[in-house]
């Protein structure tokens, strides 16, 4: 880790054994994350997009220690916290908001008096723009957006430097999503935070992420500054993903890359295709793609892509 980065992920691998049969023997493995490397700079929003099953949530869980990596390393500064996708189940229904927020305070700032605890809880609630009175409420009486604010306050309680946001808005109403995103970005500037934003929502990525990585079956297939990625998508998968964003205006329609939509479902991570894992659905698949898995190659400064179409250019 050099002096500037807050997070360095190096060749991260996570396989899950698949058990079955009478003796529950492992007879295969799901390659959920298969050799992923990236770095995050301070105050950066690092976006991770991909379909469900691409391994993006597994990376989030590996970062905060909910899963242990099969191999590879994760290095970070300070504390790491997480905001979950579903605010309904990320708050204990039997604990008041105040009790939920007190737990990380107690664990990370030992020796706080009751009064100090209450005061910190009130500060945290104010920070996420909730009335401090909410400390006495149970999650049941809060709206989805309010619950997500509490979840954010809980993540902030232990003074982290880095927060994993796992689909933080996908369970919320569209009108609430924008407010939560605004809050998240304001907190980032205020508290000098870095985020790993996991989402399948490309419009959200375009608006929020500084750098975006596209994942497919456990691997990063393309990674670039967000503006660059959306302007010049290099990987056929990124291109079809971008083509799948619904457009609402003529101007957007004009900007949209014309690619036909990808066919079929994402293959099972139990049986990842040989060679390039995307060749079964790729509109530009070549003979080499069925045999050799492409490496990530730098095609522009900061822009890397794993595709044989660009590999040829790299060789020549």
């Amino acid at each position: 880790m050099n002096s500037s980065e807050v997070l360095v992920v190096d060749k991260l691998v996570k396989y899950f054994p698949v058990k079955g049969g009478f003796w529950r023997r492992a007879h295969g493995q799901v390659r959920a994350v298969d050799g992923v490397s990236f770095t995050v700079q301070p105050c950066q929003v690092f976006g991770l997009v991909g379909e469900s099953g691409s391994g993006k949530s597994t990376i989030g869980r590996l970062l905060v220690g909910l899963y242990r990596p099969t191999s590879g390393t994760i290095t970070y500064r300070g504390k790491m916290q997480m905001v979950f996708q579903n605010p309904g189940s990320s708050l204990n229904p039997r604990r008041t908001v105040g009790k939920t927020l007190e737990l990380p305070l107690r664990l990370h700032h030992k020796g706080l008096t009751r009064k100090e605890l209450r005061q910190r809880v009130a500060e945290l609630l104010t920070q996420v723009e909730l009335n401090p009175e909410y400390a006495n409420k149970l999650p049941r009486s809060l709206s989805g957006g309010q619950k997500q604010r509490v979840a954010i306050a809980r993540a902030l309680a232990s003074d982290p430097k880095f927060i994993v946001l796992d689909e933080p808005t996908s369970a919320l109403d569209v009108s609430v999503q924008a407010k939560i995103i605004k809050l998240i970005l304001e907190l980032k500037d205020q508290l000098q935070l870095s985020y790993l934003l996991i989402s399948h929502d490309l419009s959200l990525m375009r608006n929020v992420a500084d750098v975006t990585a596209v994942m497919y079956l456990g691997k990063i297939v393309e990674i670039a500054p967000t503006a660059e990625l959306f302007a010049n998508p290099a990987h056929p998968y990124t291109q079809v993903l971008l083509a799948s964003i619904p457009v609402v205006s003529v101007e957007e329609e004009a900007l949209k890359p014309t690619k036909r939509l990808v066919e079929g479902e994402i293959p099972s991570p139990l049986q990842i295709p040989q060679g390039c894992s995307f060749h079964t659905r790729c509109p530009e698949a070549m003979e080499i793609c069925t045999r050799v898995a492409p490496e990530l190659l730098t095609i522009n400064p900061d822009h890397q892509v794993a595709c044989h179409l660009h590999g040829k250019r790299g060789e020549s």
């Binding site: 220690g65 979950f84 996708q85 189940s89 990320s90 204990n92 039997r94 737990l103 990380p104």
Partner: peptide, 27 residues
């Protein structure tokens, strides 16, 4: 449940998670 995972991430003890996070929901 995600609230149990959240408590794990925060570093809560196993006793806390069993008796304070899970048990009240079984009560």
């Amino acid at each position: 449940e995600e609230y149990v995972e959240a408590a794990q991430i925060m570093g809560a003890s196993k006793l806390h998670i069993m008796f304070r996070e899970i048990l009240p929901n079984c009560a």
